[in-house]
Nucleic acid binder design. Sequence first.
RNA 1: GCGGGGGUAGCCAAGCCUGGUCAAAGGCGCAGGACUGAGGCUCCUGUCCCAUAGGGGUUCGUGGGUUCAAAUCCCACCCCCCGCACCA
Length: 967
Amino acid sequence: MVSNRGGHFIESALDYEKKWIVKWSESKIFEADPNPSKPKFFICVPYSYQNGPLHIGHGFTFTRGDAYARFKRMQGYNVLFPWSWHWTGEAVAGTSERLKQGDQLIRKVLLEIDGVPNEIIDKFTDPAYISKYYTEENRKVVRAIGFSVDFRREFYTTDLHPYYSKFITWQYLTLKKKGYVTMGKHPVVWCPHCKSATGDHDRLIGEGVSPEEYTLVYFRMDDVYLAAATLRPETIFGVTNIWINPNHEYVITEVDGKKLLISKKAAEKLSQQKKNVKIISQVDPKKIIGKIVETPLTGVYIPLLPAEFVDPNFGSGVVYSVPGHAPYDYAGLLTLKKKVAEVDEYNIRNIVEKIKPISIIKVPDYGDYPAVEIVEKMKIADDKDPRLEDATREIYSKEFHSGILKENCREFSNQKVSEARENVKQKLIEEGLGDIMWELPEKVVCRCGTECLVKIVENQWFLKYSDPEWKKKVKEHIMTMKIYPEEARQWFLNVVDWLRDWACTRKTGLGTKLPWDPEWIVETLSDSTIYPALYTISKYLNRGDVKPEQLTPEVLDYIYLGIGDPAKISAKNKIDLKLLKTMREEFLYWYPVDMRISAKELVPNHLTFYLFHHVAIFDEKLWPRGISVNGMITIEGEKMSKSRGKFIPLKTSIIKYGADTTRCTLLLAAEDMDDPDWREKNAREVKLMIEQFLRVVEEVAKAPLVDETPVDKWLMSRLQRRIKNITTYMETLKTRKACHEALYGMYSDWRWFLRRTNNTISRTAVKFIEDWIKLLAPFIPFTSEEAWSILGKEGFVSVEPWPIVLGELINPEAELAEELIMKLMDDIRSIMDVLEKKPNRVIVYVASENKLELLEEALNIIKENEQKSLGKLITRIMEKLPGREKQAVALARALLDTVSSLISTYKHKTIIDAAKNEEEIYKRAAEFLSNELSTQIQVFKEGTIGLYDPLKKAETALPLRPGIYIE
RNA sequence: GCGGGGGUAGCCAAGCCUGGUCAAAGGCGCAGGACUGAGGCUCCUGUCCCAUAGGGGUUCGUGGGUUCAAAUCCCACCCCCCGCACCA
């Protein structure tokens, strides 16, 4: 067990961050034990592979998880947020191997990017040491960034860990028992030199290339079959001849009792894919040119012709020719017809002349012979033209997606090309006239420099994800889960559909041995599916209450499945009965997992496997309840890459900016499945904002308080809206919006408040600040704790109750009044801008009472028929204000604008009341406005006797839209 | 190719599901002003084009369509990112 010692903190940028790490740790507030009086919430993130330092990409996902955990904790849930480390896999072993071989590049990356100290790097030749080293390092980072983890439950994977492998052993025995693990074979990209599968990361050339399935089609020539490899077996109805390359070596081999004629290279390849491949004899290809062979299924006799475009290193080195539908084949014929000498040498002139394309596929946009058409259209003259690749791709794709076999295709006639392909293949194999051959579509070269080929690995263990019943259960469960964002749900469903059996064992690397076949190790993605269940009991194991060897399958059967008699199990395994029952209860208390948060790259693999395994093993009510996925980090707009230096360890940004700034910058970077972009500039801005927040709190803490200010009601009302929004956003994992509103939204309200009160702070305003601190606590917990203590509060804000909306404090009247003031200020300003001169004074004319009816009219009209409201309102205005017909249109439009902007936020009555109080509202704000605008503001009501109104602006006044005169 | 996501003003990035309140939130950058010994920080104002009274014009990848009304709905197209298996 990796020790759980504290005290080794990395240097954070900020002293107060270090302080709170210690306080949290000492107070144990994040350690979670079952508490029947509280609702539980189990949240987790996938553990990270320990082959390098945690980087800001991890930071993004994990901070979302932590923010959510903190939010739920403040909401009163008993939150379990555990942590562990993934050691399983082959990559670390690869690093060790490369280091042993003296690979300077890997050494450089380890030293310079990962920051491994020079004096210990030689120990990295031991894979286990690497994972151990990073686990120790990364634990410090997890603490430093303030994740609210219950560290008592920590573990790491593989059989290097005393009890993890016991858990995996139980898991695989259970899966096997239920029939979800089967044995089979599968093709892999293989290095003949290294004698191992060559994964993407182990390749010099050919990243992303995977084996493709070709069909071998057998053309009989006496007792030998020419085995042509094709991606399009359905085209054998259009075959006119066979191509071989006369300038290369061909052999006759015996495969499964049949004699096949293929290129020498193909025979070597095939020997990796089939048992008992024997080379019987060499064949001189020149000597068989012109011979006639029999087509399978149709029995048609066709000739064997020479073609240089046939690559003997690809496929079987034998190609059957379909000139009507394959551009290469048609071009091959054209070429051959021009090579008079060669044709005569083989004495095949007669044969060649007679060959005509055969049309077998109907396809839109083309006639009977698409290959002929495209070759002619592109003016391709011979089979060496590189554009044949494009032509082939075009025809291939077109025919696959929209082609239908014609009447001359026997029982396959009228089938879609996409269906017929599979059917013809099956038929050929059934009849013993075909087989499957795997081939790499592009060259792949192993890191060792050897060219790779495809090998069929035998006796491989698979997880049977193809099982339709299993799939069905998983899909049904996906339909009922909480998935954020919603778009991910369809993705999951697609993945389940598409998933094939998964090779779940490996021969090399770190991991846990397959219990019934210990020469295999359970593969990395397959040993990390239901481990959240282990968290529920791991604290007892870490404490030594249960010894690893006591974790037998029957003990785990009881804890996780409730199978067996606890008394007997207790006696047999010498586990205290009470403890055994406690573990069962604790598992049932925490399970299921309520929320798992991860990057979207894990949707097609880990997260889906996670669902499959839970569905396979546990009772339905223990299946995962929620998943949230997020995007993947880019750095300054570019993809993360160690070799290009686009890599920022979390530790680096914590040291540079502090933990809270790092957290907040990440959270603000993206939402849903969008990819967050880390920009140093953003981090600097966020840091300033956090400092500003702390300054605000300090000022409030010192400020003399008044009992009340006129905008308190407004402030409290705004606060309620903010609480509501932030809470809703958090509930749906909209962490960016939530964090943004908590930081910037709250700040903008606070600024307006200070402006309006001329920096006077009331007791109510302190309440606003308190809630602000709480609302920020999930995102910037260190700063929030610090702020909480600056305010003189006891305890930890991390465990304070989350603010709830107090309905009685929602005050639309107050909000609308402020909105009117802002609007008036804007209007006055925009006029001042146009005037471009310093005004002496501004007079505001509030509409007279008799215009209130117009407002009401406008509200009703909009409500009832939004379509012709303008016309109606114009009519009403003309009735109401006779003699003002000229202005009616403008007035109506202005009124409608004003009203329609308010109607969605405020109730009818609120708007009317505000209009009634309009004069009062402006008069109360007159001093404020005068200061803001640096001029004298006077407020009068339209119709006041002796009103000073040189521009007749009072007449233009409408309710909620006063007339303005500037001089 | 298949599947998923996306293209919004100088940049980043909301809005799109539930059409009108959108010239379009917020942040940055830039400009002006306040504060300051000066700066930094902070605060205010402006930042598509035109306009000497709160106005008008043209914008949300491209092209069509639906609608009284479209960044928002529908169709087609172009472009970008991610995953596609034995790799964590």
